[in-house]
């Protein structure tokens, strides 16, 4: 009797759990693996009439080619700089907003929260034309600052709500106790709150970094000099330029994928727990 139930359980788990998991993993991994395999192929291998699933040898020529000849190294560093500087500002803004929303009662608090949520619904493409003239007046066109300012505006709202759920997780009594001991606001924020908030800061940074790294539309319209392109913009122009050289493009894509994919793998847990503690609710 017991044995029968056990066999039934194992069967159920196989069909309802293990096989679906295998299907999901296959669907997710195949595009990555195909690009990885293509990136090691030579042009002749790639163009040969019989499609090979694995490259003949691991040759890194495509990688050094895109990195140097196609200026991918420059794009990579540009993206790194733009995203890095943006993230520093985003974190400062998010901590200030989250602290204000979590610790104070003030008039317009609900409105500000709705305002932040509302920004998530605005199509970037809608206001890109006037934004161009705003940035032109600020002399930001064709500078990385156009992307940095835009990234801050685009990424701060959602990340504020995520950060708020982390600040909410720190008991209010801690800052009250510090205040009674005579600590000023700056001391409370920098010496007490920020160290406790560190896991949240790491998660929000990674989350914001991915968003900045992937930004395309503003980079495409506001940056005009090849040497200032970020990775998505550089890739877009390479698609037109090297439509024949797919292995090189595959190598470029793998390089571009590494930072967001690795960061995501690390923060995925925090993202889910941050969301589940009510980041998106008013």
């Amino acid at each position: 009797m017991k044995k029968k139930i056990r066999i039934k359980n194992i069967l159920a788990r196989t069909f309802l759990l293990y096989i679906p998991i295998a299907i999901i993993l296959t669907c997710v991994l195949i595009p990555f693996l195909w690009a990885l395999s293509t990136s090691f192929k030579t042009q002749q291998e790639f163009l040969s009439p019989t499609v090979r699933y694995l490259p003949n040898a691991l040759n890194f020529e495509n990688y050094s080619y895109v990195w140097q000849e196609s200026h991918f190294g420059t794009y990579f560093l540009n993206s790194l700089m733009v995203s890095g500087i943006s993230v520093v500002f985003i974190i400062i803004f998010c901590i200030c907003n989250a602290y204000s929303l979590s610790r104070y009662r003030f008039k317009g608090k609900k409105f500000f929260t709705m305002f932040l949520l509302g920004t998530q619904m605005m199509p970037v493409i809608l206001f890109i034309i006037p934004l161009f003239s705003v940035f032109k007046n600020m002399h930001l066109i064709d500078t990385p600052w156009a992307l940095i300012v835009f990234n801050i505006v685009l990424q701060t709202p959602f990340n504020t709500l995520l950060m708020r759920s982390f600040v909410n997780g720190i008991p209010k009594e801690i800052d009250e106790a510090a205040s009674i001991d005579g600590a000023g606001r700056a001391t409370i924020m920098f010496k007490i709150l920020i160290p406790m908030l560190l896991p949240g800061i790491v998660a929000v940074s990674a989350f914001a970094f991915i968003g900045c790294w992937n930004e395309f539309v503003v980079g495409f319209t506001m940056i005009q000099t090849n040497a200032k392109y970020t990775i998505p913009v550089g890739l877009k122009f390479m698609i037109g330029q090297y439509s024949v050289n797919y292995p090189a493009l595959a190598a470029g894509s793998i390089i571009a994928l590494i930072p967001p994919v690795i960061l995501f793998a690390f923060i995925q847990k925090h993202l889910i727990s941050g969301l589940s503690s009510g980041a998106v609710k008013g």
Binding site: V28, P31, A35, W213, P232, K236, V261, L263, F264, Q268
Partner: peptide, 20 residues
């Protein structure tokens, strides 16, 4: 971590991966 990772991939890179 693996199943959710495509979320972090940008539109331009989706184009690259799928065009291949």
């Amino acid at each position: 971590a693996i199943s959710l990772v495509p979320w972090a991939v940008s539109g331009v890179l989706i184009t690259m991966l799928w065009s291949l």
